[in-house]
Design a protein around this nucleic acid. Sequence first.
DNA 1: ACTTCCCGTCTAGGAAGGCA
DNA 2: TGCCTTCCTAGACGGGAAGT
Length: 431
Amino acid sequence: MTRLRAAVPVGHAIVGIDLADRKQMVVVTDHDSKVLARRTFRVKAWDLGAALDWAAERAAKAGFEGATVACEPTGHRWQVLGQLAADRGMPFVCVQPAASAYARRSEDLTLDKTDDKDAVLIARLTAQLICYLPEPLDETWARLRHLGARREQLIEEHVACVQQVRDLLECVWPAVLDAAKQPFKSTTWVAALTVVVGRDGGDLSRTRRLGPARFEAAVRREVARRGKARPCLRIVHRLFIALTDPAGVSTQRVAIFERIAWVLQDWDHARSRLVDVEARMVTVLDLLGLTVLATSIDGLSPVGAAAILAETGDLTRFTSARAVVKHAGLAPRERKSGAFTGRARLSGAGRPRLRVAAWRAVWGCLQTNRVYAARYRHLTTRESNRLTPTQAQTAVAGAILRQLHYVITHQQAWDPAVAAHGTRQLEVAAA
DNA sequence: ACTTCCCGTCTAGGAAGGCA
DNA sequence: TGCCTTCCTAGACGGGAAGT
């Protein structure tokens, strides 16, 4: 509240701006949301500099020593506006769209919405300090943020390619999917499929006539082309046997194999770009000097840590570790009234990508991190208030975020003893 | 050197519903 | 009537190290 008040001092007028594509509603109000001036600017967001100058002048004329700019974080526009405000030395705050939506309804109990009402509402919420200071991103953190977004995009592309290939194969050649337990994680399987799809044009007997030895040689070449040393022969053999399996829609085989070949190319492309982006993310993490600290948490990889930090930004901007968990939407939302105790659920409000990154970190950590594994076991097996696996994983995800916050804000490597017992003192006392 | 293990989240795609 | 959105469901995927 102190920091917010510093951005919205009592001596300042408030410039509420309702941002849209090419129509920007600007109002200048005092702290009682009395409108001092109101004007529509039919310009794009990046041309709002003149509007800010106009608003500053109206505020000065009304006797205020300055003006604070407030808007909703719509798309990229708020960032452009933030830059313009910073250029003019005007403090800049944002109002959560959820807050203004609630406020609009409580205003007159209708869903009435107009741009100038919205602008006034934004100014009023700002005067009540129902606003926040937007995250300041420096160049390095901004780069990490965008790399994280790009990585997520590429992972989605990767998943889409895999699901397409699987669906297409289930239609025309389902047997091949049983050749490996996890076919899409197996380089051998993918290489063998590439060979089949590339050479037989939908006629599996053509590859079969090649014979197992020459098929194996072809797969070997493809595995090498994919940067791996040698194929898993078990999978090559099972895939060769699958060539004789008649199941599947035969009339579509030619067309679908042609299509699979394209998807496989897309997939390779997506994966190589993913490798590139992940390497860049690790480089940025190194630049920030956080790789050693973040990966001191057992089971957290540099890429996993970078994915989390890409979404949180600099963790020192969070005043408490719990705030990070809340930002991820992983904080429990309690529902209690009188004697009634409802089930606490995750709030789910926050950065979805941060939540996903934390979840992915949990899968890795539960396998390798002894402290988290023990915590998970305890939570899911204890006698009273036993948690479901999901609930326990949520608890671990929260722990990872909290401990990452501590590790980075205190510049102190992760210590399993502290993580397990809360403090080192307790352990010493117990000893 | 490659595969497997863990399980909630997420995706695609079809169906159903909504709306002009 | 036809387009668009939402709902619904099945089932694969993600990360890291032990296992093969």
